[in-house]
């Protein structure tokens, strides 16, 4: 992409593309800027006609209320910690297990492979509401209620993750694997030392999406945890938004704070999944 001739046609083309991309950025970002501004406003200002983007005055009280909670119980930090523990652990297990399964499904041939693939895929096609009750019963039977393991174990790996890994590893150069085998590297060695390190882009992407989806999980923690000490961030947000009076400003503040960890994680991991992995760059085709 670097050896481009800057012809006039190209300049116009790039200009048009930039406009298009910026439009999408505007669409995506405007509600978020709204959220940012609204987190500093009172409800009256948020719904004012005409709407003014600058809060006057800056309501820092919203953030205080957001973290302190309605009863000033200060549970928000604890909820954040719980969410971190759960989402983080689930992400790690998913990376490992999805990596293994994706690798097995893409780079090996065995009888029933397609059957296994479709079966795994089918697990993401059933709505949660239909399996809510049996999952609850299983969790109860396995003594998972009201504990961290109850939040983590039912989500050790997801079909989405396996699918992503498989599709990515389909394009992984098979000759590197064969070469490693000829060199005498064991299968596990190949997996951990060759395949995984060279799959940084997909692992980073998978980490982000898994972390995000666990962070956002409302229904399962609701069912499984009654102990206030174990509750996660979505539960906090739900309680906050159920206030009998409308305090949209504080809710936006809660939203902002709740999204920060995700945004930071995304920013940190993004350098891994842009630009492709070395294994692809280094191949001479």
């Amino acid at each position: 992409m670097s050896s481009e001739i800057k012809s006039p046609v190209y300049k116009i083309y790039k200009f048009l593309i930039t406009i298009l991309l910026v439009l999408l950025v505007l669409l995506t970002v405007t509600p978020l800027v709204f959220m940012l501004c609204a987190s500093f406003m009172t409800s009256k200002q948020i719904l004012a006609i005409p709407f003014s983007w600058i809060p006057k005055p800056f309501q820092f009280k919203n953030f205080y209320n957001a973290v302190a909670g309605t009863l000033h119980t200060w549970t928000f930090p604890r909820n954040m910690l719980n969410s971190f523990i759960v989402s983080g652990t689930v992400t790690l297990t998913t990376l490992l297990l999805a990596g293994m399964s994706g690798y097995g499904l893409s780079k090996f041939r065995f009888k029933g492979k397609n059957f296994v693939f479709i079966t795994i895929m089918s697990t993401m096609m059933i709505p949660f509401e239909a399996i809510m009750i049996p999952m609850y019963m299983i969790a109860q039977k396995l003594n998972l209620m009201n504990s961290y393991r109850g939040l983590i174990i039912p989500y050790l790996v997801s079909a989405f993750g396996i699918f992503q890994m498989r599709q990515y590893l389909l394009t992984f150069p098979g000759e590197f694997l064969d070469a490693a085998r000829v060199d005498g590297m064991g299968e596990l060695g190949i997996f951990f030392k060759l395949v995984m390190p060279n799959s940084a882009p997909v692992l980073a992407t998978l980490a982000i999406t898994t972390f995000r989806s666990q962070w956002d999980n409302l229904l399962w923690p609701l069912l499984v945890t009654q102990n206030a000490k174990l509750k996660t961030v979505p539960l906090y947000i739900t309680s906050f938004s159920e206030e009998k009076h409308a305090d949209e400003g504080a809710l936006m503040a809660v939203a902002l704070l709740a999204s920060l960890p995700m945004l930071i994680a995304f920013f940190a991991l993004s350098k891994y999944f842009i630009g492709g992995s070395e294994v692809y760059e280094s191949r001479k085709g």
Binding site: L32, F34, M35, A38, D216, I237, A255, S259
Partner: peptide, 29 residues
Amino acid sequence: FEILWYTPAVISSVVATTIWMLIFDPRGL
């Protein structure tokens, strides 16, 4: 670009809908 486009996915669903409900409130943006 990617970070900006991805941020909506990072917001919790409860909050995302609240934001849009405020925007689509008859008096809203």
